[in-house]
């Protein structure tokens, strides 16, 4: 049974791939909605790495970190989407580069 289980480095590989895809999305997209989605993917990828490591040791800590990441993601999305609404209202566009005038 033990040798038949999922190898840890494969799970981590999936996690790394997901992270890099998310990062790529973060860099190439200009729409703020997509940027937020990419962030979700990256957070999820790191959560996967935590779960895998926690499972490897058979300890609950990995899942606890997952929950903390979950709450960070929830808070981030709530604020981020609020910002999206404000950006849309103010610039009439969701293009990140339209909002790059810096003030103050």
């Amino acid at each position: 049974m033990q040798e038949l289980a999922v190898p840890l480095n494969h799970v981590l590989l999936v996690s790394s791939l997901l992270f890099c895809i998310g990062m790529l999305g973060l860099m190439i997209r200009r729409n703020i909605i997509f940027i937020l989605m990419s962030l979700e993917v990256m957070l999820n990828a790191s959560a996967l790495a935590f779960i895998a490591a926690g499972a490897h040791w058979g300890q609950p800590d990995g899942q606890i970190m997952f929950m903390l990441i979950l709450s960070v993601a929830a808070a981030e999305v709530a604020v981020g989407l609020g910002l999206v609404l404000q950006v849309q209202r103010r610039f009439k566009s969701l293009d990140m580069d339209d909002a790059n005038r810096m003030r103050g």
Binding site: L26, M27, R30, M96, D97, N100, R101, M102
Partner: peptide, 14 residues
């Protein structure tokens, strides 16, 4: 370097 372009910031972080 402070241009206000988000994607450049992200790229430099990466």
């Amino acid at each position: 370097t402070q241009t206000g372009r988000m994607r450049w910031y992200i790229a430099s972080m990466v």
